[in-house]
Design a protein around this nucleic acid. Sequence first.
DNA 1: TTGCTCCTCACGTCACGTGAGGTGGC
DNA 2: TTGCTCCTCACGTCACGTGAGGTGGC
Lengths: 275, 275
Amino acid sequence: MTSNTDWLTVGQFARLSGLTSKALRHYHEVSVLVPARIDPHNGYRRYTRGQLETARRVRVLRELDLPLAEIAAIISESDSEAATRRLVAHRRRVEARLTALQTKHYLLGKLIEEKEINNMPARPTTLSLEPEMQRKLAAELFNYVWTLLETEDRSERQTERMIDAAHASRLLWEDIGGPTEHARGEWQISRAYAAAGQAGPALHHAITCLTLCEAHGIGDFDLAYAYEALARAHAIAGDTEACAQYLGQARAAGEQIAEQDDRDLLESDLASIPQ
Amino acid sequence: MTSNTDWLTVGQFARLSGLTSKALRHYHEVSVLVPARIDPHNGYRRYTRGQLETARRVRVLRELDLPLAEIAAIISESDSEAATRRLVAHRRRVEARLTALQTKHYLLGKLIEEKEINNMPARPTTLSLEPEMQRKLAAELFNYVWTLLETEDRSERQTERMIDAAHASRLLWEDIGGPTEHARGEWQISRAYAAAGQAGPALHHAITCLTLCEAHGIGDFDLAYAYEALARAHAIAGDTEACAQYLGQARAAGEQIAEQDDRDLLESDLASIPQ
DNA sequence: TTGCTCCTCACGTCACGTGAGGTGGC
DNA sequence: TTGCTCCTCACGTCACGTGAGGTGGC
C-alpha cells in the first residue's frame, strides 16, 4: 500500500497492459488514454492500476482494427448501446474489406494461372467477380427485381432500374448458371417489360424463355411459366387471340406441375393477365 | 498522323489509362512509370500511346494491392517467370491478411453478441457491393459492351449478353455516378440496341439520354452524341426524315465540341449511320 | 482574353516506430 | 558512478489526395 506502487510509469504500465510505451505516449497525445497525472517536476507520466482495465480494452479494440477515434468515443461514452452500434458498424467495414481482399486473392490466382500459359495479359477479359460473389449478386438482383415488381407506386425511374436489374441478373447467370437459370432470367426480363407496358421486348424474352425450355427439356413449373409470359406479352400487345392460345398452353402445362403450391401460384399469375 | 496526337499530356494519358494525374506524377517521381519525354521548355510530361499498355498493367497490379516497389520490379524485369514468382509471393501475403481479417471479423461478432443479444442489423436493401467494387464493375461492364460492339462476327447470344451488360452497367452507375454517367449509360444502351437492330428500345434510350443532357445542362461531346443516338435509332426504324433532322442537330452540336479528336470521332460515328 | 491544363512545392493521412539528444532516478 | 528509464522533438512509413500559387497553350 506504499504510494510507490500505486503510481505506475509508462514502462511499468506498458508491461502490465501489453501496450508499448510509444503507443501509450501516442494515446496520451491524441487523448485516447491520458495518464492520471503528470509529474510537474520532470514531466513523467503516471498511471494508476485502475487505468489498466481501460488500457486493456484499448488494446483489444486496436487488435480488432478499430480506429483510435472510434476507440476514444467508445471509451468516453460509457454507453454500452452506442458502443455496440459502433462495433457493428466496424464489423461491416471489416466485412467490406474482407470481400475486397477475397476478390483480389481470386484475381491474383487467375493472373498467375494465365501467366503460366501466355505471357502478359494485363487485360481482364471477364468480370472481376469471384464466382461466389457473382452468384450472390445475381440472386440479389433477381430479388431486387421482384421487390420492384411488387412495388405499387413505382416511379418511371424505378421501372427503368428494374429492367436494368433484370438484364444484369441474366448476364451474371450466364456462366454460373445452367439453362434453367437462364430460362428464369429470360422469364423475369419479360415480366419486367410487361410491367413496364413494353410489349415488344416482353414478347422477345418470352420467346427466348420458351426456346430455352424446349431446347433443354425443361418442363414443370418453368415451361408453364414460359407460356404464361407469352400470354402476358401478347395481352399487352393487344393480340387477344394469341393471348388466349398461350393461356391454354399454360394451363395444359400447368397440369403437369408436381407441387400443388406451384399450380396455385401459376393460376393466380394467369388470372392477373389483363384481357 | 499529326505529332499532336502521338504525344499525350498527363491529363490525356490519365483518361486513357484509367489512372489519375496525381498518381502518374507519383509514379514518375518513384520511377515506376516515367514519361517518354519531358518538354524542356515548360516541364510538361509527355507520354506515348505505347506506354498505355504499361500504364494499364500498373493499374491492374495496383488494384491487386501490389506495392509500387514490386510493380516497378515486375515491369522492369520483363522476365515473366520472375514476375510470376512475385505474384505468387504477393498472393501469399494477401492470404495472410485474409485469415487475419477473418479472425477479427469472427471476434467482432463474438464481442457484439456478448454485449447485446438483441439489436440485430436490418436486412440490407441495396446490393452488397462496396462502392469501389461497384465502380470497377460498372466500368468493366461498359468496356465489355464496347468490346462486343466492335466484335464483327457477334453471335445472337453475344448480342443478347451485350444488351444485358449495357443495362447492368447503367444500373450500377445509378447511385455512384452523376447525370453525365447516366446519360452515357443510356447512350450505350441505345447503341447496343441499334447494333442489335431493335429500333424501339434504341429510340427509347436515346430519348432518355437527350432528356438527361437537357435537364442537367450537359453539352459538348455528350449532347452531340445524344443526337447521334437519336439519328441512328430513327435510321434503323426506317424514318429517314427524322434521321436527317437529328443528323443535322448532331452536326450543329458537334461544332460546339472543344477537342478536335472528339469532333473527328463524332464525324466517323455519324458517317456509320445507315441511311 | 478566358478558361483549362500543366507545373512545383508543402502538407495531410494513420498509428505508431525509430532514432537523436538530453535529463532524472535508484 | 553506472545503467536504466524517462522526456521531447523530428522524421519515416505508403501511395497518393488536396490545395496554393504560378505559368503555359489553344
